[in-house]
């Protein structure tokens, strides 16, 4: 029982990180129907920006952890958002009226560029961050096994919930959210009604990148190490989460992220850690056989 609860905590934490990245995949797919393969690498860039910002803040003598965390959050979100904007502006927008596969190939290229750029600029070695947030609470204990809930896990889950709530509010209630939903349903019609679709698409990338950067910070704080290659693995997992939940659906991305996190954790805990990715992808295949549009996805209605 204690072992199960411990794995549940770990799974939810991991799932939160996947969920934050998955939102970026699902939003971009919803609006322009392309898979942004560079999104995982934007997440990695966010992590690196956070690492550099942490070290820079320590160097100039900001020692209060809450202030440092808050500043890092702002810096990383802003700079990563800029990356998201740039990627869309230069790699995807010129190809939007080209054939369907062109932006996809461009995205794969962008992913390789970002990975190699970070590898060259930051080195290929794993970068550590000294533990910033420490401490944990023992929830229950028996037979010498303690169920630990660490402060960092609390921060990860709370931040994710807060971001998802505010993002859902943004989509449901604000003008920008309305424009985004209109673009998602009919891009051409939205433009005919005067919605500036270029701007709406740019903002979608910006918001997606900002959320991915938060996931990057959480990853960095949680694992304490980062390298140029984490974007690929996390990106594929988050993409799987988006597809599992139903690509194009926001609650789907959050649910999918959580499920992938839980599946991976429990599989590693009870069966074999080597096969955790196999487990996650197998579940994806099984779900897609029975629910081709994912768990919360809408069936695509072809317009005549």
């Amino acid at each position: 029982m204690e072992y199960f609860v411990q794995q549940l905590i770990i799974g939810i934490t991991l799932g939160s990180i996947y969920g934050l990245i998955a939102i970026g995949y699902t939003m971009v797919y919803g609006i322009i129907g392309m898979i942004n393969f560079a999104h995982g690498d934007v997440f990695m860039v966010g992590g690196f920006i956070a690492l550099i910002a942490f070290l820079a803040l320590l160097a100039i003598g900001v020692t209060s952890i809450p202030i440092a965390l808050f500043l890092v959050l702002l810096i990383a979100m802003a700079l990563t958002a800029l990356y998201g904007w740039t990627v869309e502006r230069f790699a995807y927008r010129p190809l939007r009226h080209s054939y369907r596969l062109a932006p996809l190939i461009s995205a794969i290229g962008m992913s390789i560029i970002l990975q190699n750029y970070v590898q060259i600029a930051q080195g290929a070695r794993v970068k550590p961050l000294p533990p910033i947030v420490t401490g944990s609470h023992t929830l229950m204990s028996s037979d010498g096994f303690d169920v630990e809930l660490s402060n960092i896990q609390i921060i990860v889950v709370l931040t994710t919930v807060a971001l998802m709530v505010s993002f859902s509010w943004l989509v449901a209630k604000t003008r920008l959210g309305r424009d985004m939903r209109a673009c998602e349903q009919d891009l051409k019609m939205a433009s005919l009604l005067g919605v500036n679709i270029d701007r709406t698409i740019s903002l979608t990338f910006v918001i997606g990148a900002a959320l991915a950067s938060v996931a990057g910070i959480m990853y960095l704080l949680y694992y304490g190490v980062i390298d140029f290659y984490i974007g690929f693995v996390a990106g594929v997992k988050a993409f799987t989460a988006a597809v599992l939940g139903g690509i194009g659906s926001l609650p789907g991305a959050m649910l999918g992220g959580l499920l992938i996190g839980l599946i991976e954790t429990f599989w590693s805990a009870y069966f074999s850690i080597e096969y955790k990715d196999v487990a996650a992808f197998s579940i994806l295949i099984v779900v897609l056989i029975f629910l081709p549009t994912g768990i919360l996805g809408r069936p695509e209605v072809e317009k005549v």
């Binding site: 309305r178 939903r181 019609m189 939205a190 005067g194 919605v195 500036n196």
Partner: peptide
């Protein structure tokens, strides 16, 4: 915009 409400359809049109 079939998935949005009737009112939202009219408000989106006032984007500018």
């Amino acid at each position: 915009f079939a998935g949005m409400t009737v009112l939202e359809n009219l408000v989106v049109a006032q984007h500018n």
